[in-house]
Design a binder for these strands. Sequence first.
DNA 1: CAGTATCCTTTACGATACTG
DNA 2: CAGTATCGTAAAGGATACTG
Lengths: 127, 127
Amino acid sequence: MLPIGVANKAEASNCSIRSVLSNVTGKWRMIIILALEDEPKRFGDLKRCIGDITQSVLTENLRGLQRDGYLTRTVDPGPPVAVSYELTTLGRSLLEMLKPLVFWSHEQMDEVRQFRMQFDREQAGRQ
Amino acid sequence: MLPIGVANKAEASNCSIRSVLSNVTGKWRMIIILALEDEPKRFGDLKRCIGDITQSVLTENLRGLQRDGYLTRTVDPGPPVAVSYELTTLGRSLLEMLKPLVFWSHEQMDEVRQFRMQFDREQAGRQ
DNA sequence: CAGTATCCTTTACGATACTG
DNA sequence: CAGTATCGTAAAGGATACTG
């Protein structure tokens, strides 16, 4: 069995599984990793590629991923300055873990939507 | 390449990959799925097993997972009443996607911690 | 036992303006 | 171009009290 539980609060902070799993929670971290699959990208490219992320949020999340060692940030002082982000070996390794999950998500999407609609209908019927 | 980006906001809501990936973001959803790996568990068992989750938050997340079809909720009217939660086929299928990620997390934890410490040292040095 | 109901705090996210 | 700085909102989570 996996050590997912904690006996107390002090233990929670260094609970191994949780601390690393939390790297891919949040709305954007997986998306960014996936966006860097094929090649290094510059800040503006990433923003365009993802589409609906704001500058400040993209910056925050890139910092976090860089801090944890999933990507590198390289500055080419211009002018104009160009900053590019690239997956590290660790990041690429995470990407490989994520890909099956993404394809699975894609496949199961309709089923989840069915379940949701049914659940919501049942809830509505109970009112 | 994976369709992770969106061209506009309207498209974002039915962007397949994101909508299902978001099922496993958040602090607790993966944890709950993992906690149900071995056998169905009752509400109190889950709470004890996870350790540091409050009743209300556990309830919310169980509802969400049930809504999306990952688990079932079965009531045995007592008294005393006993409610047990069990992974569905879909939930078990998700669990299998999650397990490699969890083991990977466990293995890579030290490396991530090293990166973090180094990054934080560099940041401190820059002040 | 398995919740609901409140209320509160924290975190993530978003919009906008400004800068070297 | 790639940010930073502010400010505001929304969602998640947490603490506590109460209930059939």
